[in-house]
Design a protein around this nucleic acid. Sequence first.
DNA 1: CTTCAGATAGAGCGTTCGTTTTAGCCCTTG
DNA 2: CAAGGGCTAAAACGAACGCTCTATCTGAAG
Lengths: 197, 197
Amino acid sequence: MGQTSTRDRIVIAASRLLQRQGYVGTGIKQIAKEAQATLGSVYHFFPDGKEAVAVAAIKYSDQEFAAILREALNSEQDPGAAVEACARQLADSLRESGWIDGCPVTAAALETLGTDSEIQQVCAAALRSWEGLMYDKLLRSGFRTEDARDLATTIISTLEGAEVSAQVKRSEEPLEAAGRQLARLVGSYEVVPSVAE
Amino acid sequence: MGQTSTRDRIVIAASRLLQRQGYVGTGIKQIAKEAQATLGSVYHFFPDGKEAVAVAAIKYSDQEFAAILREALNSEQDPGAAVEACARQLADSLRESGWIDGCPVTAAALETLGTDSEIQQVCAAALRSWEGLMYDKLLRSGFRTEDARDLATTIISTLEGAEVSAQVKRSEEPLEAAGRQLARLVGSYEVVPSVAE
DNA sequence: CTTCAGATAGAGCGTTCGTTTTAGCCCTTG
DNA sequence: CAAGGGCTAAAACGAACGCTCTATCTGAAG
């Protein structure tokens, strides 16, 4: 047995597979195989079945991506440069993965929209948590609350959409363009100097 | 028989189902049922099977969405206002559909990224055709070609991402915020007056 | 009327899906 | 040593999947 528990291996494997193949396209047996666990183990830790595994996996992806986002945002003091760093980071890891490891929740979210499953709720929570990180960064940079709210929502939307475009086109260009334009947009706001940063 | 051919009904039904459930989540038999056709008919018109149906359906969705986009872009002379009109149009039809009829290609594209199917190619072509419409609008408004290219890519990405956010959150707010911020971004450019418009 | 390709119809193929079930293993505790 | 709970293992269920097959229907040309 490795140092990661069987349950953790299941969650991590599921999060990767959901990211790449979506909810419908990912099978329970495939998750078990990828996690080097057996079907019995999966149903032991998640008696409620596939949807419960997916919910845990998406929550994990949420936190994992939030850490990456936080680091990119903290790498630059200027908010515009920080947003551009986020786009750069997304482009790098996307290219390195062969254009397959995109946003961890988009695929799963879109497939389960019609259904009233818990999945879309955790996906919405993930989006909100990422927007919250961006919102805080803007507030710390002296933005007014209304501006920060609108901007944070739009920045996350744009990064989301640019990542999808980059995946489909197999090119970093959409993310680079998004980074440039978002930096310009952020820079177009008058900001009151703050002692906080 | 109605006035639309069996083949057309299959393509239209497939495009709707792909939009709502993605590629993996949509079955051939479901397409046939929705199109009021039989399985035999589907395989008669598309001997290559499910993927061929999906390719035809996505191409149809591409043109259908391009028409909507063109109309929204032409409804306003000012490019910023035109982009905002696009966001407004997307928000309206999304709400009316109960947040299920989003971008017609995103779901299918994300699911088939790993595979080397023809689907992601037609999805990429759709994205490019929509960017082209936006690019032309910006050029006609006097934008420099480099600015127009970057902007068009980013605008389509943002609308794409904002639509996904709106679907997941079941709220028009992401699209409204995107419309406002995109209008601001477009307006931040110096534009040379043109006699063309 | 006959002919024959285009179009429709649906049973059934093998496979995989999510899930359930039953059995057995390991390892700590009494 | 015995006991029992946490965990693993694998067989098997019904349902649905994409697809193939054969059979029938339709309608215009000869």
